[in-house]
Design a protein around this nucleic acid. Structure first.
Lengths: 196, 196
DNA sequence: TACTTTTGTTTGGGGTCGATACTATTAATT
DNA sequence: AATTAATAGTATCGACCCCAAACAAAAGTA
């Protein structure tokens, strides 16, 4: 068994256990694992990336599937939709307070929390680093679009307190630079998602 | 966002992409991601671990779900079942040549293969190491049962060419010590799955 | 013998997911 | 300006996932 096979195996298994745990805990809020992921994505998406299409690209599902999932989340009041001002085809998505509450209750799953405590020394940190790199590579391999924070994006100009996006030529607030963007293009040197 | 949240996020996302790719490639053989996982498990399970219950514990699903999945795999000729000689309740599972062929065609998924080539230096290796540790911890946290190879098991006695299991008091062939076992208990010092 | 536990199947229902067909709006072409 | 193509999103269908619950059969236990 070579390393790639092994890696695939481990990813599936780790994810499977986490997913099955997420299912258990999500049941209390009537939230499926995928719905939690959608919720989590929307919460962390910036203003260029809070649409159904972006969710579709990020999660690697078809738009039909995503549309259904969003419908459920809407009907349960976990997200809100508002029409885009420029483009009448698109809807902007936002997580409601109820959605945030559910999200915080379900994520990370109890299993992950417990496991996190058992990892020794810098194991947690290095694991996160490896996974970040891996995700980056997978996303680039997969859809030529990689999703990441403005902090690490080549399009991000300026400095702390005075950021702007070179692509849209719009200013970015400091908090905004920590959200994820579908137009993200990695810099040479970058920090893993969420590390800042 | 703390490291545990981040890790959960990364796991879900990495796995989601791999899973969606597995779905695409598996479609040619009418194999779902979960079915591939079951197939892969059975292939790598030793003679104490090739039952439906073991699959259930390994994958973290319910026995009903597993039973259904096995039924499909059986009907497609990807696995075979034979009655246990001692216990009339249990069936031993085995992957057929057709199953092996499908497995080899579908795993690892094209995405993983490509991504594996893009990882530089020892990145692949260290990623595997981190994931192995993580899986070990998750399994222990989850079901007090961790699945692993005899090579790394405290119950494994003797040396190369003359192994035996201290729990069942039965001899083990060299190849057998590389299969995974549900009675596995990790040694202090152990090698990641598949590294030998 | 009567009980409990373990192994596995079956059934029903809610949910996932891709494929396909469809509408509405915007962008591109001619 | 009119036509055509591309894009954002919805709706429906069918195959399948997954759990829960009820069940049967064998094994272990008191």
């Amino acid at each position: 068994m070579n390393d790639v096979e092994l890696m695939g195996l481990l990813i599936d298994r780790v994810a499977g256990l986490v997913r099955s745990d997420a299912r258990r805990v999500g049941a209390k809020y009537q939230l499926q694992p995928v719905q939690l992921e959608v919720l989590d994505y929307i919460r962390r998406a910036n203003r260029y990336s809070d649409t159904a299409t972006a969710v579709t690209e990020y999660l690697g599902l078809t738009k039909g599937t995503v549309s259904q999932t969003l419908k459920v989340l809407l009907s349960r009041g976990y997200i809100k939709k508002r029409a885009d001002s420029d483009d009448k085809r698109v809807s902007r998505l936002k997580v409601t307070p109820a959605g945030l509450k559910a999200l915080r209750a379900c994520r990370p799953s109890p299993l992950l929390k417990k496991a996190g405590k058992l990892l020794e020394g810098d194991e947690l940190e290095t694991t996160v680093d490896r996974l970040s790199d891996l995700l980056q590579v997978l996303q680039e391999t997969n859809n030529d679009r990689s999703f990441g924070q403005c902090v690490n994006c080549v399009h991000n100009m300026g400095k702390r307190g005075d950021h702007w996006c070179g692509l849209t030529r719009e200013p970015l607030s400091d908090p905004e630079t920590e959200l994820i963007c579908r137009e993200f293009t990695a810099r040479e040197q970058w920090h893993p998602i969420g590390k800042h």
